[in-house]
């Protein structure tokens, strides 16, 4: 497997260092060749930077990609936004040689060159494609049989598809495959592909952001969902933080929000505290408790064996 640099991004390192923790734990225990490298900046965030200055958006992203190109590494990120932005610029420059030349003229002044040779992947498709479901299954100590999970893909894990090319942009499967490989049931629900709406919080429309979160949380609650699993720090902010704010106002949904690497870590035998899950705003203990109570039941094989061998009249 080719060495790869992890692009942590601003949001995880600023607000959710526990996501970095669980990601490192999982990468370590799979013995994956991940590297931390110097020199990254913000990816940059599209809605802030691209709306104000497209040139700054392109040059900054191209520089970040150039850093991994130089080292002949690939790039993997646990943030959907970062991967999507970097890949969007990579696609734009590869399709547009003249713009690429312009960018490289600038980059040359700081001793860099954008080639666009490195592969840019989000953590979920990376685990699906490169690590593989088989290898993951071998690491499971205790699976999630009986647990009902709602998956939130996060728009930028899969879109824009011309830049990312990793799954169907409207009916993706890979995240579902990983979650069901861990034994859980992946719920199919109306609002599954709906955008989380966190962007509204960034344009001073907090109430509307809450409204967007509420739509999905309401549906999940009505379906008896045990946890919402996602892999994007913005979506995490929206569903964990904003759900907590609604709880404080008396509107309780009680849907724990779990990062993909946390769920994987739990299945591999790590404790919730090792993974930093005690740092979530919405309490994860109902999920853990239900999971533990399920595993206290005898395994299915034993139950049927007991049934067959039980005394009875024929």
């Amino acid at each position: 497997m080719k060495e790869f640099a992890v692009f942590w991004g601003c949001t995880i390192q600023t607000r959710f260092p526990f996501i970095e923790k669980s990601t490192r734990i999982v990468l370590e225990s799979f013995k994956l060749p991940y590297r931390d490298i110097d020199g990254f900046t913000c990816c940059p965030e599209k809605s802030l930077v691209n709306n104000i200055d497209h040139g700054a958006f392109v040059v900054t992203a191209a520089r970040n990609v150039a850093l991994v190109d130089e080292l002949d590494y690939d790039l993997v990120s646990p943030c959907t936004g970062c991967v999507s932005n970097l890949a969007t610029v990579k696609g734009e420059l590869r399709a547009n040689p003249r713009e690429k030349a312009e960018v490289n003229k600038l980059l040359k002044e700081v001793g860099r060159e954008f080639k666009g040779t490195s592969k840019l992947q989000h953590l979920v498709p990376f685990f699906h494609d490169t690590v593989g479901v088989h290898a993951i299954k071998q690491k499971i100590k205790k699976d999630f049989t009986g647990m009902r999970i709602g998956i939130h893909y996060g728009c930028h894990m899969i879109r824009p598809s011309h830049a990312l090319r990793n799954d169907d942009p409207l009916e993706p499967r890979k995240f579902d495959t990983l979650i069901t490989a861990l034994g859980a049931q992946s719920l199919q629900f109306m609002t599954k592909m709906m955008c989380c709406g966190q962007g509204l919080d960034r344009i001073d429309e907090h109430d509307r952001a809450l409204h967007f979160a509420r739509i999905k949380l309401k549906e999940l609650k009505s379906l008896g969902c045990d946890a919402l699993v996602l892999c994007c720090p913005s979506c995490f902010l929206q569903f964990d933080n904003n759900q907590f704010l609604m709880e404080k106002e008396g509107e309780k949904f009680g849907i724990p929000v779990i990062y993909f690497t946390e769920l994987l870590g739990l299945a591999m035998g790590y404790k919730p505290e090792d993974l930093g899950m005690d740092l979530h705003r919405v309490d994860c203990t109902p999920f853990i408790k239900k999971w533990e109570s399920l595993s206290e039941r005898p395994p299915r094989e034993d139950a049927i064996e007991d049934g067959l061998n039980a005394p009875g009249e024929l």
Partner: peptide, 8 residues
């Protein structure tokens, strides 16, 4: 929201 649904 720049979710790119329209693009797809």
């Amino acid at each position: 929201l720049e979710c790119h649904h329209c693009l797809e």
